[in-house]
């Protein structure tokens, strides 16, 4: 199976470790993974901030870059939801505005074959035990677009529960938004920070060493809050936990 990694612009620029972890994990599971160099950004920030027309060329680029792969895997619930939920809407709106069906036609093939990482593991590869080893206490925060947009359900938790050495503890108020919300974090900084601080306090109350999630943007907000509040926890992307093994442990 020819699988493409859609890493996302945030991970590419700020969190290359997450990208390396996805590559290592998928290779370990026998997947031939490629990183098409022409990929950039899915356009979510543009779309959600009210710049739909600026998002369109980015979506078109995505459709063209990933057209020939059998599956597109992304370590981001949020960008995954952008493709799966909002790309069809982008195409529809462009047509409704009398700009033809070109965008719709470019986007249609990539929408159903785009998977968030945990979805790809559980649904396509049909594994929950990925052979990982991670001897730490971990609490898991389901990010909103993965939870409510993609409907990831208990997939991430099932994957984490199968990791040897990992002690998974319940996060109180897990379903509540962390307060990142893309440009919301800077347009409404007070509310965003209050939500982040509450999430961090809930995470701290579990006694876990690690706060795990499937979206580095949310973890950037929470990690920044954690270090400002001088908590001893650290944010870790789920891919890095699943990639970690006894022979090759994550930092």
């Amino acid at each position: 199976m020819r699988v493409a990694l859609f890493l996302t612009c945030v991970n590419d620029t700020l969190y290359p470790d997450t990208g390396r972890a996805v590559v290592r994990l998928l290779r370990r599971l026998g997947v031939d993974v490629d990183f098409p160099m022409a990929q950039t950004c899915c356009g979510q920030a543009h779309y959600n901030t009210g710049y739909r027309h600026e998002a369109e060329p980015l979506a078109r680029r995505f459709g063209e870059v990933f057209a020939d792969y059998e599956a597109i895997v992304t370590p981001s619930g949020s960008c995954g939801a952008m493709v799966r939920e909002l790309y069809p809407r982008l195409g529809e709106r462009a047509r409704a505005e009398g700009r033809g069906d070109t965008l719709e036609r470019v986007l249609a093939p990539v929408v159903p074959k785009t998977y968030e990482l945990t979805e790809f593991l559980v649904d396509v590869l049909e594994v929950t035990d990925v052979g990982a080893y991670y001897p730490h206490t971990v609490t898991y925060h389901p990010t909103c677009h993965g939870l409510r947009g993609l409907g990831l359900g208990d997939r991430p938790r099932r994957l984490l529960q199968a990791v040897r050495g990992l002690d998974l503890v319940e996060l109180p108020g897990a379903d509540e938004c962390c307060g990142f919300g893309g440009t919301f974090a800077v347009k409404n900084p007070d509310v965003s920070a209050a939500m982040g601080a509450d999430k961090v306090r809930n995470a701290e109350s579990t006694g876990a060493e690690v706060l795990c999630a499937g979206d580095n943007s949310c973890l950037m907000h929470l990690g920044g809050t954690m270090s400002r509040l001088r908590t001893r926890m650290r944010p870790v992307h789920i891919a890095e936990i699943l990639a970690s093994t006894e022979e090759d442990p994550a930092a």
Binding site: L7, N11, D12, T13, L14, Y15, P16, D17, G19, R20, F35, M37, P189, A193, G196, A197, M220, H221, G223, G224, T225, S227, R228
Partner: peptide, 13 residues
């Protein structure tokens, strides 16, 4: 209210 993330030595690409 939040620290900035550390920049990596090189981007993934």
């Amino acid at each position: 209210t939040r620290d900035l993330p550390a920049l990596p030595a090189e981007p993934f690409r």
